[in-house]
Amino acid sequence: MLLIRCPWCGMDRPEIEFRHAGAAHITRPGPPDRVSDEEWAAFLYLRDNPKGRVAERWRHVHGCGRFFNAVRDTVTDVFVVTYKAGEPRPPETGPGESQPTEARP
């Protein structure tokens, strides 16, 4: 059972108090008549599944009830940081070392 820091409660709380809520920082496009089918399909269904750090949403459902975001490493399960919904992903939490690195010139 993981320990997750709820940014609202300011406490580490046991995983079973939380519910995972999918990828973070997905914006709902709109208004509807300005959104292409492709854009909407991407919003509905297309998500990254990286090995390494992901930004995802959690809800402290059996606690303060709030949604928040977390950067978690899918390889180590380590929570790099958690932050309140609406806040940007901290820049220093970019893909970690377990992310396959692209060749750079």
Binding site: A21, R59, V61, G65, R66, F67, A85, G86
Partner: peptide, 13 residues
Amino acid sequence: FGMFEDYLQTEWP
């Protein structure tokens, strides 16, 4: 209830 909470907190706060 959970879905509404999601929209209330994160979509239309």
